[in-house]
Design a protein around this nucleic acid. Structure first.
Lengths: 205, 205
DNA sequence: GCGAAACGTTACCGGTCGGTAACTTAAACG
DNA sequence: CGTTTAAGTTACCGACCGGTAACGTTTCGC
């Protein structure tokens, strides 16, 4: 606490660890986790492998930490996205899918980094597994909660439907292009599901 | 054509190339493409690396051929699955999702091998890319065709909805367990979408 | 100024990667 | 029989993998 951290100075070079971390997140997301070695990460971050291992115990630990950071930032954006429509679950759901559609339509989007990591990391003992698993469970929980707040009787099914549409949008992103892809239909499909499962359009409480 | 092929004899050892091919497909699917080396494939197939390269030009070519075989077998199963309900697009759609749900609920299922390959193979020049791309386009085309045959006015959107639900089911398979997973709700969600987009329940022609 | 972190540099380790050369063995064929 | 073909065997290649040891250099707090 008494340490003076010369970080956060605008224009100043960030600490090596942070540079490595951000570089790794970018490379992992764009090229895939298994396709990027620690040498490439360190080099791209403007340092070398030795400095890498001074900041991270292993590549697997770095991967897990990248995934944790991804989850944390995602929920921050999630909360900020739902806040303007507090109390209106229907609007919140539509905001989620509008945001997902917008992000996916942008160039250079590679889908959900957590889902992609689940495909790449198949060894059962990888430290990233728990991160992915916990994230997906939480995502399902939140979507079901939103579905419940719409007043839908079958809110579990509706929530799972939202989850499947969201995951499907992420999954198709790598093969279908941004515009004209099936995920541009997602917002309309969400409204269709809402029309079936929460037909009254009644707001929470 | 004058060659006598001593293959297909029941109980006889298949040709080396076929053994390698089937072994590779299994290992690629279970452990991931990048996680399996040609040495492991050859060894698991009961032969060695040299025999591998006598049958396949490179690992990338083997991967592409595995993906092509997967696509071919998938459409064979697809056609066989739809045949009993010829002329009834609604029943055909439900058959597709019932089959997908059944397969996903089984143990050891790892989702769609083509979607997984799309995540693992990010180099733009990989020969497997075209296979994946063509398969996904064809899948979308067929689902939209089925949607159109239900008489739905917005059959493009309905078809894309079916695609997203299917891809979402595949994507969630690696993180959520077989039973009680969101994909068990998929058949019910399909009926909901059909109720919205093809409410008359009218059959083709 | 001084000690102590933080960081850069070089070399190295064993292992595995995809891929190849050269040689041997065995079986199928006429 | 001899020839051809498929297949097994061994050794090897350069490159890269994740990870480490040892040693300089810079920078910062005190």
């Amino acid at each position: 606490m008494s340490k003076k951290l010369p970080d956060e100075a605008p224009g100043a070079a960030p600490r090596v660890r942070d540079r490595i971390f951000q570089t790794a997140r970018e490379l992992f997301y764009r090229q895939g986790i298994r396709a990027v070695g620690v040498d490439a990460i360190a080099c791209e971050a403007g340092t070398n492998k030795m400095s890498f291992y001074r900041s991270f115990a292993s590549k697997d630990e770095l991967v897990a930490e990248c995934l944790r950071a991804q989850v944390g930032e995602f929920w921050l954006r999630w909360d900020a996205m739902l806040a303007p429509h507090a109390g209106d679950a229907r609007a919140q759901i539509e905001a989620v899918f509008a945001s997902a559609a917008a992000k996916s339509c942008s160039e250079n989007d590679c889908g959900c980094p957590l889902s992609n990591a689940a495909v790449e990391l198949r060894e059962a003992e990888h430290p990233g597994h728990e991160v992915i698993r916990e994230y997906k469970r939480e995502l399902r929980r939140r979507l079901r909660e939103l579905a419940r707040e719409t007043g839908a009787a079958d809110w579990q099914v509706l929530g799972d439907g939202l989850l499947l549409l969201l995951e499907g949008s992420n999954s198709t992103r790598l093969t279908f292009g941004g515009r004209g892809s099936p995920l541009s239909s997602a917002p309309e499909l969400v409204r269709a599901l809402l029309a079936v499962y929460a037909p009254a359009g009644r707001r929470k409480r």
